[in-house]
Design a protein around this nucleic acid. Sequence first.
RNA 1: GGGUCGGUAGCUCAAUCGGUAGAGCAGUGGCCUUUUAAGCCAUUGGUUCCGGGUUCGAGUCCCGGCCGGCCUACCA
Length: 495
Amino acid sequence: MSQEQPSPPSADSSLDGSDQFAVRQSKLDHLRESGNDPYRSNWDQSHTSREALDLLPEDLEEGPEVSVAGRIVAFRLMGKASFLKIIDRDGKIQSYVRKDEIGDDEYAAFKKLDLGDFVGIRGPLFRTRTGEITIRAKEYRLVSKALRPLPEKWHGLTDNEQIYRQRYLDLIVNDDSRERFRARSRVIREIREFFWSRDFLEVETPMLQAVSGGAAARPFETHFNALDCDFSLRIALELHLKRLLVGGFDRVFEVGRVFRNEGLSRRHNPEFTMLEAYQAYTDFRGMMELTQSLIQQVAERALGTLQMEREDGEAIDLSGTWKEAKYKDLILGAVGRDDWFDLPKSAKLEKTKELGIEVDPELEDFEITNDVFEKIIEHTLIQPTFVTHIPRELCPLAKITEDDESTIDVFELCINGQEIAPAYSEQNDPFVQREAFMKQVGEETQELDDDFLLALEHGMPPAGGMGLGIDRLVIFLTKASNIRDTILFPTLRPA
RNA sequence: GGGUCGGUAGCUCAAUCGGUAGAGCAGUGGCCUUUUAAGCCAUUGGUUCCGGGUUCGAGUCCCGGCCGGCCUACCA
């Protein structure tokens, strides 16, 4: 380490810079040889970047000394002084490092730092000529070496596959992605706060289930060795939460992962996060108030606004009292005739062809109608809309409407052209429930959950229940276009 | 599962009709004490996703495979 030699001969001289990993590894080796192993270092933070920036009011040129730490994301060497920018958990801050302030040897070592390295920096705050709040370094220390280069600084990382498989790189270089996942976390926190404030009990129910019910989806199957029996991963939270209503916990909610062995799409990931809440002595009308208040409060607190914007620029207004529409009215409007529900199946199929949608002719009448809803109506419901009076065949777990035997007391909340949250007046008649299950078991590959029916026979209080797909909520709250942009590590084929 | 588009340097992207694979950033060496995608000079770096085929010659054309985007199907 002589000061005279401008660049001491070392292993570096054999490296031409073509192999960035080798160059960085060589730098690491030299640090270790000189007793400065970065992987054995640490640093005490006095402030985060954000906190430090807040310490220098507009009218002041000089601020107190701070000690920060983070990853180097910009590095500008200018002879005997340098600027670098580090990123930590709440932002970025610039530091100014001068040779005459940290010393010749230290500065020589400093120049060997790389983009991506973690450093600690201590020094007073000041304002640069262009007004940027900056730390004038008195001391720095390398506390972890990055052996691989960061993605390009200007374009960031754009390759979708790499964004999903190496999310950490996306989070380092793509500000919007980092902010989207912070927003997701705030949304979930505010959801919990909402239910806690309404005296709901947060619970955890099994993910491994002998019978996975509560929805019509194919489950993932697995085998439990100790008991030598098959289990499936849950596809919904519903049936266990209702057992808790039976048990006397009359306001419960759970936020948790559910798993459905179905296809992938912009709106579907095989594991996704569901909220379900059940409240005794209310009904789907009560859930309507609850759901609207929940989403409004979450948006207000987590994002500070009720005015959303989709990726395509269209606005979504979450304020006020949300629209209500009867399922039947929406269908009649979409097909353009009042006698739709009296038409024979062949005429319905004829009409769907006119409307330009493909419908499987093997389907039941109500399924054809529901295809009309899902393929023509759903994606047009951008503004929050409670769709009510849904045909009873579509859900076996809800109460029948008192003055209309053909519909159930439920709503399906649609926002952003997607189903976000269904809610029901929960069926608590064990006979009607068993009948509905039997009918479903007959036509689907569905197992009967006898244990749940046994619980119902002990008596479940009248209740309203609601389920909400958190990933889809986050999609429109954060202007994302794809569910994968709201899930940190989305499901991909193994590399 | 089907359709379609794509995979080129660490990253972001070029490469005409099938004719020597290039640029910016990053890296390396040098200059530079308030920069802002810092600047200037020089410079390294390629299994063109993989495997076959056609051809004098393939990043480019054909066949097969792998991985991904979008659309679609499945999806309470």
